[in-house]
């Protein structure tokens, strides 16, 4: 008996994970936050997620075809969907449809595929897309809704759909009537106009820790993020360093001047800190890879975010902070190489 076998390289074990599985777990982990978002701000966000995902898959398919890559294989990695959902979570719920289109074009085509596709992008694609639409369409990007519980009018699913598709406010309403400044925006304008934070916090927009509703969305993202850490899909370093640096720096600012600086908890529970810490700054492709590098990366994002919130031109700064740190990531990695065994 002489039997021939096909050979292959060791290890001879079935793979324990796939890129698609990693990305799908990120999507599962986003669910609690998205549910909280829908609960407090209505179904608009779900429409944005659907729109962004549609455009993302469209651009992904086109680019894969153009680059002559196997379409099914790469669509199956779910990375475009993660990008789309993270991008959509940054949009005002009733932003017009072409925002998602432009954002996804820049995210998928420019930031991802022109840099070489999956695994080769220097910048976080979702944040590139978001930064482009934020800078280009400031008006559309500031039409935020108040939480349903304090909204003057009830905007239903169809009203929302109409607003997104037409770019017009729902019939019989004006943008001014239905939109409201976000908590961070409110803090920013009240401090600028000489009010103290404590005075601004009397407004209904605020809840117990941060913005009303926003704090629960943050809790949802934190729950999902901790699950991801437990599943070891993301490392503990980035979220810990980012939230830690926000708390330390926020506390310092608060103790120095509580009138014009929000408390560290208000910082953490408003805006995109928690989403950023667990889901955006943890993007492995555009972030650091060494454990110490990840600590520096996370802390850098936290510090830059607070600096932008305090002195920048935008109320929140997570996206810009992440993009700046993306540029620094290769350098940080270079200087934080772990010690080699026996070295």
């Amino acid at each position: 008996m002489n039997r021939k076998f096909t050979t292959g390289a060791a290890p001879h074990l079935p793979p324990i994970s796939t890129v698609g599985e990693v990305m799908r777990q990120v999507l599962y982990a986003l669910c609690p936050g998205v549910i909280a978002y829908t609960w407090f701000f209505g179904t608009g966000i779900l429409l944005q997620i659907l729109l962004a995902t549609g455009f993302a898959l469209l651009f992904e398919t086109l680019m894969l075809k153009l680059r002559q890559q196997p379409v099914a294989l790469f669509l199956n990695d779910w990375s475009a969907v993660v990008t789309a959902v993270l991008f959509a979570l940054c949009l005002p719920p009733l932003a017009p449809w072409w925002i998602a289109c432009v954002g996804m074009f820049f995210a998928i085509v420019m930031a991802k595929h022109l840099y070489g596709g999956l695994g080769h992008n220097v910048f976080n694609p979702a944040m590139v897309g978001y930064a482009v639409v934020l800078i280009s369409f400031p008006q559309a990007m500031t039409q935020w809704l108040p939480p349903i519980s304090i909204a003057p009018t009830d905007i239903g699913f169809l009203d929302g759909l109409w607003a997104i598709l037409s770019g017009q406010p729902p019939a019989g309403m004006t943008w001014d009537a239905i939109t409201r400044a976000t908590p961070l925006d409110t803090i920013r304008t009240s401090v600028a106009s000489g009010q103290t934070i404590a005075e601004a916090r009397q407004l209904q927009t605020f809840g117990d820790l941060g913005g009303r509703g926003w704090e629960w969305i943050a809790n949802g993202f934190a729950a999902g993020g901790i699950w991801l850490m437990w599943r070891r899909v993301i490392s503990w370093q980035v979220p810990t360093a980012m939230i830690g640096s926000v708390i330390v720096l926020g506390l310092a600012g608060y103790l120095l001047d509580p009138g014009s600086n929000p408390s560290p908890l208000e910082h953490v529970f408003s805006g995109a800190i928690v989403l950023g810490a667990f889901f955006i700054a943890t993007d492995p492709v555009s972030g650091c890879t060494s454990p110490r590098g990840r600590l520096i990366f996370g802390a850098g994002v936290g510090i830059l975010t607070l600096m932008i919130r305090r002195w920048g031109a935008y109320p929140d700064g997570v996206a810009f902070a992440v993009l700046v740190m993306n540029m620094a990531a290769p350098l940080i990695d270079r200087y934080t190489r772990p010690r080699i065994y026996g070295g």
């Binding site: 292959g8 001879h12 074990l13 079935p14 793979p15 796939t18 890129v19 990693v22 196997p70 294989l73 990695d77 990375s79 596709g117 999956l118 695994g119 080769h120 490392s235 492995p284 492709v285 972030g287 890879t289 060494s290």
Partner: peptide, 15 residues
Amino acid sequence: DIQSDQAEMPCIRCG
């Protein structure tokens, strides 16, 4: 036991 048919993807630097 081996599932050698799994396609190779680009590194996503997950660490």
